[in-house]
Design a binder for these strands. Structure first.
Lengths: 152, 152
DNA sequence: ATCTATACTTACCAAAAAGAGAGTGATTAT
DNA sequence: ATAATCACTCTCTTTTTGGTAAGTATAGAT
């Protein structure tokens, strides 16, 4: 049984860094205490609204609060504010306030935000490539086991 | 103002696919209906427990229920079962049941699961590289705005 | 006869996250 | 005078999530 796909090797890590045009810090990869922080960071950053906002700002360069709200359509003001605040705090978006009335605030990605969207590219590609695989796996599972088993 | 970091280009996407050793399906990238599914899939897959289990199974090849439970330490049985079920349904882990008593069940990653862990590699690398950047951004924000602003 | 081990399932409950909707404050348009 | 715009904030309610603790089935060990 040959394995066509393997977990990422150090060489892959190096190549990925090269694609994103970032210097290779050997030690950061092996530091164990980083794991927890990385996990927390990914948890924060890999949520629905954050990813949508990231995509929209990559596409449009800069958007105002209501423009974002309208583009997303289903987000509540509360969630939009909250998500933008967190992203701002993490240094992913920059907030530019114009002292006019009615108020005007523009959001754009920082360089860090842009690199994050680039980093997500791999996952995005994976998801796009494996959509049908996952869907058929689900169908197979549901047929065999029944959906009831999933709601605990 | 030169921009050192840019969002992923088509060429980057191609290179990433090459690293993960997968064929390049041009059309999948531009299909709009994919966005939603990708988002849902990432939301499912980018949660705390899923990522931890993914990492553990990459490292240990196969583990039994209680072994996973002990390795993680803080997970409840309920969450472990639930997460494993979802991963199985999505075709990320394979479940091997030995018909013995007391029961014995082994979990291992499928090929799909392995490719997912590889795809997350880019995000992992990003998080590891930008940990300090994010942390100092947070400090700066908290000093200027005050933490109170984040709890809505 | 009782205890242990395994891989769960079920019912219940608390906490956290998210949505709905009204309010704010200043200014320009009607 | 009234309404509309914008970027929020605040409160209240609903939904979702996750933890706890108990139960199940069966075989072998003590």
């Amino acid at each position: 049984m040959t394995m066509r796909f393997k977990p990422p090797t150090k060489e892959q890590v190096r190549q990925i860094k090269a694609i994103y045009n970032r210097p290779h810090k050997e030690d950061a990869i092996n530091d164990p205490r980083i794991d927890q922080l990385v996990e927390e960071l990914i948890g924060r950053v890999a949520d629905k609204w954050t990813m949508i906002i990231l995509e929209l700002l990559v596409e449009h360069q800069q958007l105002r609060f209501t423009q974002l709200s309208r583009q997303i359509g289903t987000i509540s003001q509360k969630m939009l504010t909250q998500t933008l605040r967190f992203m701002e705090r993490d240094g992913l978006v920059a907030r530019k306030v114009y002292p006019v009335v009615p108020p005007k605030v523009e959001y754009r990605l920082t360089e860090l935000g842009l690199t994050l969207s680039a980093a997500f590219c791999g996952v995005w590609v994976w998801a796009a490539d494996n959509l049908t695989t996952v869907e058929s796996a689900r169908k197979r599972f549901d047929k065999k086991i029944g959906k009831a088993k999933l709601s605990l």
